[in-house]
């Protein structure tokens, strides 16, 4: 019986099926808002799904010089790790379906896998653009990962626990905590923007410079998996932030679900606006932005949190 339950959880809710639907919805929202901010009509609601179906049904090409094994494994790996991360994110409840004491760390760790995969994907695709993109991916990874970790650490330190359930519980009991870590939320959103390689931090896949970076050589179903993985990472990212920074869900499950969705929509709107209002930075400008501005902000936030914690004595 419990195996069936596990399977349902992994494959349907909140696993694969729900994650895909949810992330496609967020992709649509992101694209639609982006388009409307640019005074365009924007894509219809089902466009992300159609795009996915179209890519999957296209011819599957593996370049002769590319590493066949890696070429097959990597797209699958990137999607599975992203979906696995989603399973640990609470959605309609204070806790996920498999809560344990360190789930926050596991999610952050699982989210780094797709970035590594991207690096390998470019490296093994035997294409100069892919290789340049790989290097940039790696450099960017070293840039955003530190501020991201520091930002995610903030609510954990405040709540005194690595468990998402405890963090959410703490914030629901002490609503001021949400206000106290807004700076960390901002840092986390900007780091997420870099993680997802979106403007202004999209140098690793800068279309006009290096075509599509690491995934230049990928076509058809494999490309579809990479795109899907990016969408899922977006979904995991905003879902995680809405939990650990915005006090998660509360109330009966349907209200909690609505609240959760509303928070995700707001976060997506913010990162869509960031995408719309800037030009792409060069890779060394990205690095210095993260290290010069975001890391100090995140550190300062951490100090403030520690002081608050000492002062209030919670």
């Amino acid at each position: 019986m419990s195996i069936i339950l596990d399977l349902v959880r992994i494959l349907i809710f909140p696993g694969l099926l729900f994650t895909v639907v949810f992330s496609l919805f967020l992709e649509w929202l992101d694209r639609k808002l982006y388009a409307r901010m640019q005074n365009r009509v924007g894509p219809p609601f089902r466009q992300p799904l159609w795009d996915l179906v179209k890519l999957i049904s296209k011819e599957d090409i593996i370049p002769e010089n590319a590493n066949q094994f890696m070429y097959t494994v990597l797209p699958v790996l990137t999607v599975t790790s992203a979906v696995a991360a989603m399973i640990y994110v609470p959605i309609w409840n204070r806790e996920s379906v498999y809560p344990f004491w360190g789930d926050l760390l596991v999610i952050v760790f699982l989210l780094t896998i797709p970035t590594m995969v991207l690096f390998l994907a470019g490296w093994f695709s035997a294409n100069p653009f892919g290789v340049v993109g790989s290097f940039r991916t790696a450099i960017q990874f070293l840039s955003y990962e530190v501020p991201l970790l520091l930002a995610v650490l903030t609510p954990a330190v405040l709540a005194g626990s690595w468990s998402i359930r405890d963090i959410v519980l703490f914030q629901q009991e002490h609503p001021w905590a949400v206000a106290a870590q807004l700076a960390a939320l901002a840092v986390a959103l900007l780091a997420l923007q870099g993680k997802l390689e979106r403007v202004p931090f999209d140098a690793p896949e800068a279309e006009t410079e290096i075509v599509a970076g690491p995934i230049t050589e990928y076509t058809g179903p494999r490309l579809a998996l990479f795109r899907l993985s990016t969408d899922i990472q977006l979904a995991v990212g905003v879902a995680l932030l809405s939990n650990i920074f915005l006090a998660g869900a509360i109330g009966p499950w349907y209200l909690a679900l609505l609240l959760f969705l509303a928070k995700c929509v707001v976060l997506v709107a913010i990162i869509a606006a960031i995408r719309a209002m800037m030009a792409r930075l060069r890779i060394h400008q990205i690095t210095s932005f993260y290290w010069k501005y975001l890391v100090p902000i995140a550190m300062a936030q951490m100090v403030i949190i520690v002081l608050i914690k000492g002062g209030v004595g919670v």
Partner: peptide, 15 residues
């Protein structure tokens, strides 16, 4: 605008 990744500028000026 498009070349420097600022697509909003691209859309506005073409509009």
């Amino acid at each position: 605008g498009h070349e420097i990744g600022f697509d909003t500028l691209f859309m506005y000026s073409w509009r």
